[in-house]
């Protein structure tokens, strides 16, 4: 069933006046996520931009309870909170760990891996802006090949590939791992609803969230850049159930240069660099199609 303006639940669980940058993709992600998850949600937020956006004491920009926690701990703290709620007979509340790419791919990876190996009953959301943005745009292992950050500056732009986090999570054979994008709100909200309904085990959503400030794109291009990431297959939308049942949600047709060119963070790339990136994207896409069981060219 497709959504229309009438069927989308617009009850906002975020207050206006949060302190996200103009055009912040992570903020759009939260707004859409909470619409899908509803008020019986508790958030666990480690250090990241969202630890700021959620507001300083004594304010909050969210209408659901929030547990702020140390950078590496989202997976573990969410496990503890889940256990506490279960012990008190509350099985209704959805515990949602909400972390950046640094808190997920890097420093929090161990705690996350431990938690999903135990198949903890929670939803873990990584909003991915492809660097440590809170601290001023340093590289993470989610930073893509080709990006300049403040720790991969000048000619030392990042030469290693982005870690494939969904595959890493799927390899834990959790019930549900999927990608989503702020540019595809219906798809994103469907996935949050689906994840919410799949109680009893670990669910993981990898949400692409443009950071206009760090990526050096105009704030009004936040959503269109995210859309191009999907349309060029650099960020495919797909779902993995139980680590082995793959579903593709969208097939892109555009060349990656269309995605790379408008962004300041990739400004230094030559035609040859872009060709190299295109080859990587094609290779990743082929691998994904093989897992899905589709003909990569079909």
């Amino acid at each position: 069933m497709s959504r229309t303006a009438e069927t989308i639940d617009t009850a906002e669980l975020m207050y206006p006046g949060h302190v996200g940058c103009p055009g912040c993709g992570a903020t759009i992600a939260m707004k859409l996520a909470l619409r899908a998850l509803g008020e019986k949600t508790m958030l666990v937020i480690p250090a990241c931009c969202w630890a700021i956006i959620a507001g300083p004491h004594p304010q909050t920009s969210l209408k659901v309870p929030v547990l702020h926690t140390a950078f590496a701990t989202a997976g573990a703290a969410a496990s503890g909170l889940r256990a506490a709620l279960d012990r008190q007979g509350d099985t209704e509340t959805t515990v949602v760990a909400w972390a950046g790419d640094g808190g997920t791919f890097d420093i929090g990876f161990q705690a996350l891996s431990g938690a999903v190996e135990r198949n903890e009953d929670f939803l873990y959301v990584c909003y991915d802006n492809e660097a440590y943005m809170n601290t001023g745009n340093q590289r993470s292992s989610a930073t893509p090949f080709g990006m300049r950050t403040t720790t991969t500056p000048g000619t030392n732009w990042k030469r290693s590939r982005k870690k494939n986090i969904v595959e890493a999570l799927a390899a834990h054979r959790i019930p549900y791992a999927a990608t989503a994008s702020i540019a595809y709100p219906e798809d994103l909200m469907r996935k949050f609803e689906k994840a919410k309904a799949m109680k009893g085990g670990s669910r993981f959503l990898h949400v692409f969230a443009t950071c206009p400030t760090g990526w050096r794109v105009p704030s009004e291009m936040c959503v269109s850049i995210a859309r191009l990431a999907v349309q060029t297959n650099i960020f495919p939308l797909y779902e993995v159930e139980d680590g082995n049942r793959y579903t593709l949600n969208f097939k892109g047709e555009k060349p990656v240069s269309e995605y790379l060119k408008p962004q300041g963070r990739f400004k230094h790339l030559t035609q040859a660099d872009m060709k190299e990136i295109q080859e990587m994207v094609d290779e990743d896409w082929e691998l994904l199609m093989r897992k899905i069981g589709l003909d990569p060219c079909g």
């Binding site: 666990v44 547990l67 926690t69 140390a70 590496a72 701990t73 997976g75 573990a76 703290a77 969410a78 496990s79 503890g80 909170l81 889940r82 256990a83 506490a84 709620l85 008190q88 161990q110 705690a111 891996s113 431990g114 938690a115 190996e117 135990r118």
Partner: peptide, 20 residues
């Protein structure tokens, strides 16, 4: 909760204690 490190053990206690 059989966590994968002491860092996570304390984090899990923090999560649980915050849950009451």
């Amino acid at each position: 909760i059989c966590v994968e490190s002491e860092h996570s053990a304390m984090a899990a206690c923090i999560g649980a204690s915050s849950g009451g």
